[in-house]
Design a protein around this nucleic acid. Structure first.
Lengths: 132, 132
DNA sequence: ATCCTCACTATCCATGAGGTACCTATATAT
DNA sequence: ATATATAGGTACCTCATGGATAGTGAGGAT
């Protein structure tokens, strides 16, 4: 039976129309992951985030922050000074989620070698296919 | 300081070249999430998965399973019978991760209303912009 | 007078993600 | 003889995503 997968809230993330499915889709982005993890320790400015998240383009950084702000995970504070100063911080909801995402990040770092090895084995087997 | 973000394994998921970054990229897919969660309770056949994961195309299901197999998270077992029978199950590594992902899924279901409300507020404010 | 900073904002363009349709093999049922 | 069920593979096409680039604003520095 599926009873174990039914949440006590009546949601089922496996259904496309379920609100929780939409939440998962939002989370299924590497930048969302990293931005939330980066903000976990406290508020940061746009430029700080850009330097910390190696490889993110300004566009993607802004876009990701806007999505997170829209969804109530990040709060944006604008200081009316010149040059502009904008700070981002996690809301309570965001901090809540950050704990979980940080576990995932931690897991990724712990098990990166395992996955690297598995990939190497898969490539080796594929080479075997070519020879055979 | 960044000391809190440095893993004891010497990895830093914020760097593009870091193996753990690659792992995160793999996880940043909604189907990876859902397939792993679906397999959490035990082995399943291709068709079972296809029915459970509403909206997944056969191509994406196969593709996702191949990636997970390559990375050592899923084991694939072929039964040489007619009609074909193939079963998928999580490896130990995969089960390890499934626990974490399931927490995320759980969180999504718990907080779906919060996020829905936040989005509704954001839309309302945007309408205000249009009127003003 | 000109440039600099910072945080955007807009635009274009290449890449690739993902969907559909069609193909395989073969024992069983009709 | 034909259809069905199962788990794919492959080719083709479309559309969205993300990256690069350039522009904007306004006070302060030189």
């Amino acid at each position: 039976m599926d009873s174990e997968d039914k949440s006590p809230f009546g949601y089922d993330a496996f259904r496309r129309t379920c609100p929780s499915h939409t939440v998962l889709e939002m989370l299924a982005s590497k930048w969302v992951y990293l931005v939330i993890c980066a903000l976990r320790r406290g508020r940061m400015r746009n430029g700080e985030l850009a330097r910390k998240l190696e490889g993110i383009s300004p566009k993607m950084l802004t876009q990701t922050l806007r999505v997170l702000e829209r969804d109530g995970l990040v709060r944006r504070e604008i200081f009316p000074v010149i040059p502009p100063r904008v700070e981002y911080e996690l809301t309570e909801l965001g901090q809540n989620l950050a704990g979980l995402l940080n576990q995932i990040r931690s897991w990724s770092e712990q098990h990166a070698p395992d996955i690297r090895d598995a990939r190497a084995r898969a490539v080796a087997e594929h080479e075997g296919d070519l020879v055979a």
